[in-house]
Nucleic acid binder design. Sequence first.
RNA 1: UGGGGUGUAGCUCAAUUGGCAGAGCGCGCGGCUGUUAACCGCGAGGUUGCAGGUUCGAUUCCUGCCGCCCCAGCCA
Length: 470
Amino acid sequence: MTPSSYRPTLPRPPKTPPTSVMPIASPSSGDGSATSSQTPPLVRIPDLNAHVGSVVTLRGWITHLRSSGKIAFLVVRDGLGTVQAVLAKADVGPAIWDRYGELTQEASVELTGTVRADPRAPGGFELTLRDFVVTGGSPIGYPIQPKEHGVDFLMDHRHLWLRSPRQAAILRVRSEIEQAIHDFFYVRNFTRVDTPILTAAIGERSGLFSTEYFDEGTAYLAQTGQLYGEAAAAALGSIYTFGPTFRAEKSKTRRHLTEFWMIEPEVAFADSADNMRLQEDLLSYLVERVLSRRRRELDELERDVSKLEHVAPPFPRIAYTDAVEILRTRGSSIEWGADLGAEDEALLVEGADRPVFVCNYPKEAKAFYMKENPADPRTVLCNDCLAPEGYGEIIGGSQREDDYDRLLARILAEGLPVDAYGWYLDLRRYGTFVHSGFGLGLERCVAYICGLPHVRETIPFARLMNRLRP
RNA sequence: UGGGGUGUAGCUCAAUUGGCAGAGCGCGCGGCUGUUAACCGCGAGGUUGCAGGUUCGAUUCCUGCCGCCCCAGCCA
């Protein structure tokens, strides 16, 4: 495998993200001719550098205000950038200057002024105001100040917290990762398949959210789309799901949400080794994509990008049985057969410069649908992908049991309701096939790439055990 | 669900041995033409999470409850 083979080659997005691809409806700048128009052109902040010396209009929100007698500074955000506008009494005259009081933090405004390159400005450019209009007032007392706040307060004001530069940067990285996932699979001829969110009882019976469902009894919010993905893989070859999943478990940790987004590829005629290659290719591409396209956001987040620059195939592969040996020499008291604890995972990944695979866990520690390992029947063909820096498991994957009788035996042995799995067993009755897949936790992936301490900031409106609003 | 921590002004936090409830930010008024979480002066702002107990006196000590944070388990 060549170092670059994980890179998709078809849609190669532009290196510089387009900023003004959508023309903003404006009665005054419809033709987009910046020079001939009587009224100033409407400009987005990242494009100000193309308008130095000319008068422009921009729309945004006031993030910060300072005044000094006869001069005022307004820091304005338009969603793509931030710029400081200067309002001087001497420039605008008393009539406009006297309307300064209308300006408040988070008021939405339409500003008209001259773009000026200024070495004192953090972005290199400023706007010397000629006039302004407050298009949406904001009362005094905006809750979020430019200072430290506690987590609980910020989560209570999440709808406003999103406006802060750091949170906006995280959401841009999340969006970049989502788009990169689609691009990665698109060029590999995967078909995206949407699986149901409302399901009958299937899979685990605990940790499920339930709701009344007409005359059908109880419906459950899906914990996984995998079983449906397997059905789709027999129709389409290579598929992936991309959607929300739900766990009612009472987990209160930095790595858990009750509602999170999961990407679950399923590939026909792929074995466990193929599966791990796909995983390392995907993760490497996601990291590379964010490094190349969202460097500014990583800077905003103060992410140590040197921790990401080595993420490329191949990732280390450690068999579970070997991992137990390694862990015992490093002081762990783990016994063969037990699942790895968080401390064990940290020990294994210690010092790694890229994610690490731990594969072929004991059968008892894993789900019923995983295929028995022919080389060691105590274990199944599966893998976890553990991210470095304490982020832990961001992927869980396996080769699926494709033998009808063995699968039925596992379902019976685990005491699962066989009738509920009739359609799943059908996949083994009619043309069974070697196949493998995995689940990538989007929020954990975003947290890892952004270097965040908690997944609650990786999703716009986190759903936690104790948080259903906003 | 266990273990640890924490709760004081709108926000972030102080309060000595148990002895008058404090600061910064924000807010109000005034000043200032280059501020970067601006600065200077004045001012308003409190049921110290809730309930009980000890005490002349509790933010402080004790008991119970509640909220939140961190860790573990479950998992992505």
